[in-house]
Amino acid sequence: MTSPEWSEIALAACLERLQVSMVTAAQLVHVVDAWAEGPDTLCIVYRPPGETRSVVGLRRRWHDAVQPGEWRLGNLMAWGYDVGPDVDPVAFGHNVADFDLGEPLGMIRRALRYDARGVGWWGSLGDELPTRPAG
């Protein structure tokens, strides 16, 4: 399970990986905003690689890495770096950077859900879309 700082470690690992990754187009991602959402979730608002106008948001939860490894639209955590049975936050963050953010949106565009600010969200979404915590 996650510890209180798990999401902060995963988010930091993701943001650091975006700066140095040569695996995908991660270095071309422009992060607009990012935050940890509780102990097991991270949210990143970004411009995808090669796009200057689109602003999308991704929410990823610890649970994404422990679900059965079947691929479905909007779930890119079905492959990538081994995160281990306890879901290492650094490996999780690297997966998000390289294989979620660092890839073109492609068909995921069909799954985007737009918030009031026009940000198209994908990933681990509930009924309500993520919002930046105040403060």
Rank of each mutant, 00 (worst) to 15 (best):
L18N: 12
Q19W: 00
Q19F: 01
V20L: 04
S21G: 07
S21A: 07
S21F: 05
S21M: 02
M22S: 12
V23C: 02
V23D: 00
T24F: 06
A25F: 08
A26N: 09
A26R: 03
Q27L: 00
L28N: 13
V31Y: 08
E37Q: 13
P39V: 09
D40Y: 09
C43P: 02
I44T: 04
Y46N: 13
Y46F: 15
P48V: 05
P48G: 11
G50Y: 07
G50Q: 07
G50C: 05
G50P: 03
R53G: 11
V55T: 15
V56K: 03
G57P: 03
L58F: 02
R59M: 06
R59I: 12
R60E: 11
R60Y: 04
R61A: 10
R61E: 12
R61Q: 13
W62V: 00
W62S: 03
W62Q: 06
H63R: 10
D64A: 08
G69P: 10
W71D: 10
W71V: 09
R72T: 14
L73G: 01
N75Y: 10
W79R: 15
W79I: 00
W79Y: 15
W79E: 15
G80C: 03
Y81Q: 14
V83I: 14
P85F: 07
D86Q: 09
D86N: 07
D86F: 11
D86H: 08
D88K: 03
P89D: 04
A91N: 14
F92A: 12
G93V: 13
G93K: 07
N95G: 14
N95R: 14
V96W: 02
V96D: 09
A97S: 06
A97V: 13
L101W: 09
G102E: 03
E103S: 11
E103V: 14
E103N: 11
E103Q: 15
G106T: 00
M107T: 05
M107C: 10
R109K: 09
R109G: 13
R110Y: 05
A111Y: 00
R113V: 00
Y114H: 08
D115V: 03
G118I: 06
G118L: 10
G118V: 08
G120Q: 03
W122T: 02
G123V: 00
L125S: 04
D127T: 05
E128G: 04
L129D: 01
P130L: 10
